[in-house]
Simulated assay, not measured.
Amino acid sequence: MKRGVVRVGVALAVAVSGVAIASAAPRFGVESRLLPVEIATAVTEPESGASATSPDLAASFVAIPHVDGVAALLAALETPVSVLPDVVDVPEAASVSSTQPVETPVVAAPAPAVAEPEPEPEPESEPELIVSPTYVSTLVATIVPDVTLLAPVTEPGGTELVAYDPTTAWGITNPTYFGSPLKLRVVQRSDDGEWLRVQLPVRPNRTTGWIPTSQATLSSTSMSVRVDLTTKTMHVWDGSTLVLETQTTIGAPGTPTPLGTFFVNDHVAGSGSYGPHILSLSAYSESLETFNGGVPVIAIHGTNRPDLIDGAHSNGCVRVTNDIVTQLKGMLPVGTPVQIV
């Protein structure tokens, strides 16, 4: 069966260091159908291709107490902590000897030990372990209106620009392609607080760069999401409290959902095959280089095929039922981390 993506035929030209870059619009993998959405419009999708190699997921975290609000979160980070960031695509800053993580990891507790009688009975079924969230509090940088195109650098105070696929330059324009203020997940702060390391919604996936703190206003979210591709489940937390668990449709074997930590970078109205809402992610397909002349953006969205939930049928997007995606739109602000494992 052929499935589809939204074809957005608008080209965006942006200037980086005086060079004009022509960039194609995002496309989301969906069921084959014409969609009267605001941005564009026809939907087609090729058959699934060969599967891609999974990205490197090496990461380490430092646990700090859960805090509410930006001021309290920053206060908890006054003591520098050396940590390997969870995003590894951009070289570490040479001028910063330590880093201040701005997301609070929580380590999952092991299942309780249960004494077994003698003789040992035949085991029945073990209870499912609900994994704790990785991120309990996350800083979000909203880019100020007078910065219309980010120029992230590879280290605080540096001049070397971060390298990324120019066809995804629209991902760091302000406002966004869909007309929203540009918001980014903060993954690190410099010791002097003058620079922020942010995850960028560009290719390659999980690219980060440093921007001056003066270019953003800071807020925080306690929401986080984990999608497990093995069980095809989604867990949503508010802090350390599990608030939603649901089954999903994930990428087909030839067009798998990419692994890694991303973030919700826009809310878009949907219809038809999308269901009522689309939560665009900072991720791109790692098996499809282009899609109908554009770049294949990964998203969480609804579906007009609820019978395919709990299967692997998409072009990489994560589908949920329409009632669930309606809940997610109200629960997950832009900047919410989404971990796909």
Rank of each mutant, 00 (worst) to 15 (best):
G171F: 09
D165A: 11
E103D: 05
I172Y: 13
T173I: 14
P112I: 01
A163G: 07
N174I: 06
V144K: 15
T154F: 06
S137G: 10
V102C: 05
D146H: 15
A113V: 02
Y177N: 10
G179V: 03
T168V: 09
V102E: 06
P105I: 09
P156K: 11
A141N: 05
V107P: 06
A163Y: 00
S137K: 09
E155V: 09
P112T: 01
T159F: 01
G171I: 06
P133A: 12
S132M: 09
I143W: 06
P121G: 04
V114M: 04
V162A: 12
I130T: 13
T154P: 07
A163C: 01
P112Y: 02
P110L: 07
G179K: 08
T142F: 07
E103H: 07
P119N: 00
P119F: 02
T142A: 15
I172T: 14
A141R: 00
P121L: 04
P156Q: 10
T173R: 15
P145R: 12
W170Y: 10
E120L: 02
V106Q: 05
L139D: 05
A169L: 12
V102F: 03
P119V: 03
V140W: 08
E118D: 05
T142Q: 15
G157K: 08
P121V: 02
E126Q: 03
T173S: 15
T104Y: 00
L139G: 08
W170M: 07
E118C: 00
L161R: 15
P112V: 02
A169M: 12
A111Y: 01
P166E: 11
Y135V: 09
A169Y: 11
P145K: 13
V147Q: 15
